[in-house]
Design a protein around this nucleic acid. Structure first.
Lengths: 188, 188
DNA sequence: GTCTATAAAGCGATAGAC
DNA sequence: GTCTATCGCTTTATAGAC
């Protein structure tokens, strides 16, 4: 049965890419079947709840990844600046230097599915809390830490939109670098 | 026939709000029928091309609005700073202080429909060109003007994502104010 | 111009053989 | 676990009466 779970988990990343590419409504079962190579029988064997469960599992995996690779380092790094450095590196890597959009951002704008609203909210709220506290530890006053957090999280999401819209991934990496320098150059 | 065009144009804003709320795939004809009060017969009378034509007309109207109310003032204002001031006011107004998402941004992330890619690209490219030139006229060097343009356009889109995701429209207005001050406080 | 009826296709989901 | 067949429903789009 460990094998069953492993196999199911193996297709979750593929599902994530499909939802990223087509959105929730656009990711029809025929598209999912085609892209994963699994028939409907197999898909419903792994995900009895259908598409909703697939999306929920993908969102849970994303949350898990960011908790481990971004939020926890932000919270637990002895040097808060090192945690922030790590965040920028991890984010550039995760979004493939601007060639991969943020599924949570996609689900945030396409708010048809209210059932994912809580997962979307938690993703950004957890990130914001962890980053704000790290900035506090860097010496930023609370109000400034919150403002910089909004600038950074919003800047990341917006750069992903721009990079995709203009078909120019480099926009993302450039923006990320400016946001990073802003923190290091202007600690209060 | 002027009356026909007028009536058709009257429902375009409603279509825009429907696409904003449900996305392209989520805006089914039954939803459109319900929200506009027009039956399928009327809808296909106005838009023989179906949903695709509806979305194309909405995107064209959005482009027209931004050309008139944002890009042209940026290009033609005698004082480039006044053009930029006007842009920030118009943008806050257009996006209802963070309560309205950007349909072009939604279509950018939900890239199922490649047929809208050109309209999406033009929206941001025209905006970027107009703003960069205005910043140049303000005294910014070319490279800095391009960087500030990316910060502002990306910051706007990202703030809209964050505001929607966290259900906190004030994030948008706060971010807009910071982006605006950045230009006025730090002209090179 | 708006309506109803309907066509044709695709959708998510299920059943059951293997 | 994977497959095929199929159900019931919704979708986009069209036809034709009014």
């Amino acid at each position: 049965m460990a094998r069953v779970r492993a196999e199911r988990d193996d297709i979750v990343p593929a599902l994530g890419e499909i939802f990223r590419k087509h959105g929730f409504e656009g990711a029809s079962l025929s598209v999912i079947t085609e892209q994963t190579g699994l028939g409907k029988g197999s898909l419903y064997h792994f995900f009895p709840g259908g598409k909703d469960e697939m999306a929920a599992v993908v969102l849970a995996e994303i949350d898990d990844w960011f908790q481990t690779n971004v939020y926890r380092p932000l919270r637990e790094a002895e040097d808060p600046k090192a945690g922030i450095d790590h965040m920028f590196t991890a984010v550039d890597d995760y979004f493939h230097a601007g060639r991969r959009v943020c599924l949570v951002g996609v689900f945030a704008l396409d708010n048809t599915r209210d059932r994912f609203a809580q997962a979307v909210k938690s993703y950004f709220a957890d990130w914001a809390t962890a980053l704000t506290k790290a900035l506090n530890r860097c010496g930023y006053k609370p109000a400034e830490a919150r403002a910089r957090t909004e600038d950074i999280l919003g800047g990341i999401q917006g750069a992903l939109v721009l990079a995709r819209a203009l078909n120019d991934p480099a926009i993302f990496t450039r923006t990320l670098k400016r946001l990073h320098l802003l923190i290091h150059q202007a600690p209060p």
